[in-house]
Amino acid sequence: MKLPPHEQTQSLWILVASPTIWAVHFLACYTTAAVWCAKMAETGGDLGAARWAIGVYTAAALIGIAIVGWRGFVRQSFEQVPPPFDADTIEDRVRFLEYAALLLSILSAIATIFVALAAVFIGTCD
């Protein structure tokens, strides 16, 4: 795979993509549970459908993070150059960004699972 020496490949957006998915997932889980418990369930009521929704959010978030992480893995291993990626070249800058994106994807995936674990163990609105 050849890296296109283009301005866009050095974009910082790829770096924040996975943490952003994690943040949106957290917000979506929190909002869904809050609205469900406030509007649809009684005090101490069942989380019910909100748990399924959190399951769907989690699956979607993990797929998104996996895509970003896979892209990072493939691009950082371009030409099998080992780290550190600190040369003043487009290739090294891209490798650095993609490597950081890969590591952040792993962190985001773990954090997303941690968020979802609460819904696995807690089945009520209490």
């Binding site: 941690f114 674990l117 609460a118 696995v120 163990f121 807690i122 089945g123 009520t124 209490d126």
Partner: peptide, 17 residues
């Protein structure tokens, strides 16, 4: 370590709630 502690703590919640 964090996963073990989190799962251990969360597993108490159904009993506590």
């Amino acid at each position: 370590i964090l996963t073990v502690l989190l799962v251990y703590g969360l597993s108490m919640m159904p009993t506590l709630l």
